[in-house]
Simulated assay, not measured.
Amino acid sequence: MKRTHLPLNGLRVLDAAARHLSFTRAADELAVTPAAVGQQIRALEDTLGVVLFRRTAKGLELTPEGEAGLDALRAGFLQFEESVRAMQAGQSSKSLTIAAPRDFTAKWLAARLADYGRSDPEIRFTLIASEGDLDFTEANLDLAIRLAEGPGENEGAKLLDGRFVTVAAPRDAADGRIAWPGCPADEDSPALRVGDAGLAIDAAANGFGRTCVPELLANADIASGRVVALGETRPSPLAYWLIAPLPQWRQKKVKALVEALTN
């Protein structure tokens, strides 16, 4: 019989009825009616083509055919339980694999993960630098961070409303513009092109000119005085999102981290 055709519900009822030698007590264990137990046993007998129980003057008893399969059946259920425990072990794991843009990790995420990690010395992080879409299963990811308009097909939580700010060195800054992939300003001939917003902030701090970057990335450098904000921030449909497919999103360790990062 193919695995996809195994009558698992009927086999579970058989195990309970064989242990109790009573449809009534089996029904109590399984939280169903005795009639439902009888129906499952009859359906299982029809599927297997054997008689599993007989009623005698002493009560219910197993047939030799029913008796013959019990040891293997119970060993199988024990294996199922081991499998479930193995799959649930990840819920108690304190290791988190996170994919995020390199500049986001350097400018915002790393410090907050360090703070979060101090709350429990058993927490471990694996950080993957990534800009594009990832296969969560193939990369064994728990969570990813994306600069996007929404979570897409995944579950998600927005860190802050998307806002961009123009920054430059506090003094002696060049007049040129610094461009990076995703830069909202159209620059035909910027003074400098760099690979991401983090590098653009560093270039601005070193006097190369001004650049428009996500406010979330620039806040720490503005607060420390490395750069200054020029003008008002401007809203953007782009924001940093924490995202994961539903199975990963439901993990306790992921829920706890999302709550810590969004509060």
Rank of each mutant, 00 (worst) to 15 (best):
M87Q: 14
M87H: 14
M87P: 00
Q88F: 04
Q88R: 14
A89E: 15
A89F: 15
G90F: 07
G90V: 09
Q91R: 15
Q91I: 04
Q91T: 01
S92W: 15
S93W: 15
S93A: 15
K94Y: 12
K94G: 10
A100Y: 08
A100D: 06
P101V: 12
P101E: 10
P101C: 10
P101R: 12
R102G: 13
R102T: 12
T105G: 02
T105W: 03
T105Q: 05
T105I: 06
A106K: 02
K107S: 06
K107R: 12
K107Y: 06
W108A: 08
W108P: 02
W108I: 07
W108T: 03
L109H: 11
L109Q: 09
L109K: 08
L109R: 08
L109F: 08
A110T: 05
A111I: 05
A111L: 06
A114F: 03
D115W: 04
Y116W: 15
Y116K: 00
Y116T: 03
Y116C: 00
G117S: 10
G117C: 01
G117H: 08
R118Q: 14
S119H: 14
S119N: 14
D120W: 00
D120Y: 00
D120K: 00
P121I: 01
P121E: 12
P121D: 13
P121Q: 03
P121V: 02
P121R: 05
E122C: 01
E122F: 02
I123M: 02
I123Y: 01
F125S: 13
F125D: 13
F125T: 09
F125R: 11
T126H: 03
T126E: 05
L127P: 05
I128C: 08
I128K: 10
I128G: 06
I128D: 07
I128S: 06
I128E: 10
I128M: 13
A129V: 02
S130C: 11
S130G: 13
E131G: 09
E131T: 09
G132K: 03
G132F: 01
G132H: 03
D133H: 05
L134V: 07
L134H: 02
L134C: 02
L134G: 00
L134D: 02
D135E: 05
F136T: 08
F136V: 12
F136K: 04
T137L: 04
T137R: 08
T137F: 04
A139T: 05
N140R: 13
L141R: 09
L141C: 14
L141E: 10
L143P: 07
L143R: 04
L143V: 03
A144P: 01
A144T: 03
I145F: 15
I145A: 12
I145S: 05
I145R: 05
R146N: 06
R146S: 10
L147D: 10
L147E: 12
A148N: 12
A148R: 07
A148E: 06
A148I: 02
E149A: 13
E149M: 11
E149S: 10
G150D: 03
G150M: 07
G150S: 09
P151R: 15
P151A: 15
G152Y: 06
G152V: 01
E153K: 10
E153S: 13
N154D: 15
N154L: 13
E155S: 12
E155G: 04
E155I: 00
E155L: 06
G156Q: 09
G156L: 07
G156A: 06
A157F: 08
A157K: 14
A157S: 14
